[in-house]
Design a protein around this nucleic acid. Sequence first.
DNA 1: TCAAAAGTGTTCACTGTACACCCATGT
DNA 2: ACATGGGTGTACAGTGAACACTTTTGA
Lengths: 219, 219
Amino acid sequence: MAYEPPRIAVTTDIVLFTIREGVLQVLLLRRAIPPFINVWALPGGFVELHEALEDNARRKLHEETGLDNIYLEQLYTFGALGRDPRERVVSVAYVALTPADDLHPEAETRAGTVAWHRVDPLPALAFDHAEIIAMARQRLVAKLDYSTIAFQFLPPQFTLSDVQDIYEIIQGQPMDKRNFRKWVLALDDLEETGDYRTGHHRPAMLYRLKNPDLVRITK
Amino acid sequence: MAYEPPRIAVTTDIVLFTIREGVLQVLLLRRAIPPFINVWALPGGFVELHEALEDNARRKLHEETGLDNIYLEQLYTFGALGRDPRERVVSVAYVALTPADDLHPEAETRAGTVAWHRVDPLPALAFDHAEIIAMARQRLVAKLDYSTIAFQFLPPQFTLSDVQDIYEIIQGQPMDKRNFRKWVLALDDLEETGDYRTGHHRPAMLYRLKNPDLVRITK
DNA sequence: TCAAAAGTGTTCACTGTACACCCATGT
DNA sequence: ACATGGGTGTACAGTGAACACTTTTGA
């Protein structure tokens, strides 16, 4: 007699971060359907039988934001009993990062209203999504220290001050300008474009990433 | 019309490491049933509908080894198509650590023969278990550098040389004795028992962990 | 007495941190 | 001319790495 394993609904949840309005923000969806109707939730959805986990995360993100080819890494798998009131659901959570300007969601999608929210404070969230975002944030902060993950927030061209802003916003504390520049240039991941950003003050050298899609462990 | 999500078989796979015979070893099971009959595989099994993921991992480990209350952390979730020939299976992998002497498996369990194997080289493995072990090893090596995870390999009492042996085995390179001792004592996680291990040579001070179950991030 | 593991400090190089002023532009 | 952000170098402290000999025991 063959053993029949239980089958469980599997979802992905994507914590998509960006830097906007000088703070760290996360993409949320106001749910148009029960459960948790009208409550904010992470983008994501049920994994199809013939769909890889990360493919599902990328597909859902694309459907809900139009974004494609962005940085995405698996975070953790949440499988507590009762985390979904309907039935047992195991959710594989991902962290994604994108430059601010790549998305101005005010759209009403099939799934509901999509919008950026500051992570501090967060609105009330569906399921265990507050916990998921908290862990994603921890991961992001930790990775600043030993990887080049923060560069995934950068647009194609940027100034060194833009880079420093990102670090200061995520870590919540100011950094010394000279030390920061010395350090970031020593990573050898940036190169000058030769152009300058002209604004109201002294023009700033524009840089680009040597390998825009590469996230490197730095120690 | 309500959407019916697909249901997927979910398993856990546990990579249980120990230090034995001067090398890093992993617990494997020789499968008694198809698929991959007679091939070595990781312990683990299907998650029940009313069972939390980590509970399943601990239960399976207990059933197959008798071990209880050991260090266990989630590693990664593997969900590639075709990783199980029978049907779509998503597997949540865990890393577990135990002192060598806590387990002498030569037992025939219901699921098959259980045995320790060196990780270098590994035998042929079922499913994508070679990949899982490789990632687990990477995680272990990485965590040596910024956490006290290695102490989970230690028996209740141990000498400083025992501790150094563990680090040298996992990292595959010798360390300076004076520097190692200075460093490990500065962590302030060890305390002298007052007893000595007497053997063939000069007796060595025995230490114990101040918090045996605590794995701390050290930087 | 010999073999083998236990135990113990100092020096040096490097890395990370603190710190202040001039420059280029727009208004 | 002034307000604003852009850009630059040096000095010091703390951390990590190299390095050799004495002690204690059992055989």
